[in-house]
Design a binder for these strands. Structure first.
Lengths: 218, 218
DNA sequence: GTCTATATGGGGATAGAC
DNA sequence: GTCTATCCCCATATAGAC
């Protein structure tokens, strides 16, 4: 039966999300998945490759949907730049409302993404660089067109801040939820995403006060 | 000689920041510190306790300076609420321009804080909850006064986003720096902090569009 | 306070039978 | 494809001499 490979992927995804990559051992994974240790090395070749498989399984559809949403809102804008909110939504929503996933597995992967943004796992760093390059450029261009008054390098900074806020939201923050006394359950994407988009859109549109050397300002 | 304890603390801080907690072994630490393995267990009792010592050594002065800066800007506002920018600066700058540290050790700890915000290390979760509670409440109150038009629960959300953006900035992001072709070196606090504050201040002042149940709106 | 030596367990990976 | 058995190394932690 080849449910084995699937079960490994799903348990690994959950445990990596909960405990991090280096905090999760293959033996824990196989224990919860009820499979044999050798099966992991048979289906994937190493722990690093398992992580890569876990990520790619979700990231590729997410990135496809991101581009589709971006193109849709650009088309809707009929030549002009779409509103910043729409561009941000195209980037953020596919990560949360993951594909057409009946269970809540999407949010588990979202937590994994948020967590891996912070972890050292070199395997992830390469994957991120490889798969983020194209997406990043595409959204950067869209944001530049939508924000002609913001210099190019400042767009990078603000994308940086935005991704941090998004990653924090994806992974959740126990101490802040505790502080709010349950008023803000960041783990609930339906509550979080519209607020996040409003916050980030305002940030992107903030006036630029820091001098930027040798740049086209529009 | 008790340089041993110091050297362990400093090497551990750097390695935890670079590779994460579970990604760093005591053996790597003692190798770089040039001390004996048993010395770690003698001076600290366990790896968890070592992490706690590493964090507390920096976090307590940081939180003191945060409160001092907050009180200073509140005093300067003479009864009225201080500008949001000043409140944010009081929270962010002490993490970066750490105490009066001659070397660049401050930024190493900053990276550690950014990274640990994401890692599972239960030891850190407890420390964060304990030491963030007071600071969090204090800054939440200040932000509420400065933003009377923003409902209370929305303040929590925006603090959440802000801390995510701050943590990302503290820890740096190789893929974004690569994308920018070196235009935005997030690891350089002097460049990052003023931009981060401007971005976050705009986000905090964004108009509130999502309905908030049963709350004082001012 | 600092060392050597060692206890004890867990880690990723592989060979080879079935 | 799946299993058992095992290699080999690394992990945290401790005991006890100096």
């Amino acid at each position: 039966m080849t449910g084995t490979k699937q079960r490994i992927l799903e348990v690994a995804e959950r445990l990596f999300a909960e405990r991090g990559f280096s905090g999760t051992s293959l033996r824990t994974i196989i224990g919860e998945a009820g499979v044999n240790l050798a099966a992991v090395h048979y289906h994937f070749h190493s722990k690093d490759a398992l992580l890569e498989a876990v990520i790619l399984r979700r990231l590729e559809p997410v990135n496809r949907e991101r581009l589709a949403m971006l193109e849709a809102c650009e088309h809707a804008a009929r030549g002009g730049p779409p509103p910043v909110e729409d561009i941000l939504r195209a980037f953020i929503e596919p990560t949360v409302h993951l594909v057409r996933d009946p269970q809540r597995r999407g949010s588990i992967f979202a937590r994994l993404m948020g967590r891996l943004h912070a972890e050292a796992a070199s395997a992830f760093a390469e994957i991120a660089k490889k798969h983020f390059g194209e997406i990043g450029r595409r959204f950067k261009e869209a944001l530049e067109r939508a924000l002609p008054e913001v210099p190019q390098s400042e767009i990078f900074w603000r994308m940086h801040f935005a991704i941090g806020a998004m990653a924090q939201t994806l992974r959740g923050s126990p101490e802040l939820e505790a502080l709010s006394g349950g008023q803000c359950r960041a783990s609930n994407p339906e509550d979080a995403v519209p607020r996040l988009i409003a916050f980030l859109a305002a940030g992107f549109q903030a006036p630029v006060s820091i001098p930027h050397a040798q740049e086209k300002v529009s």
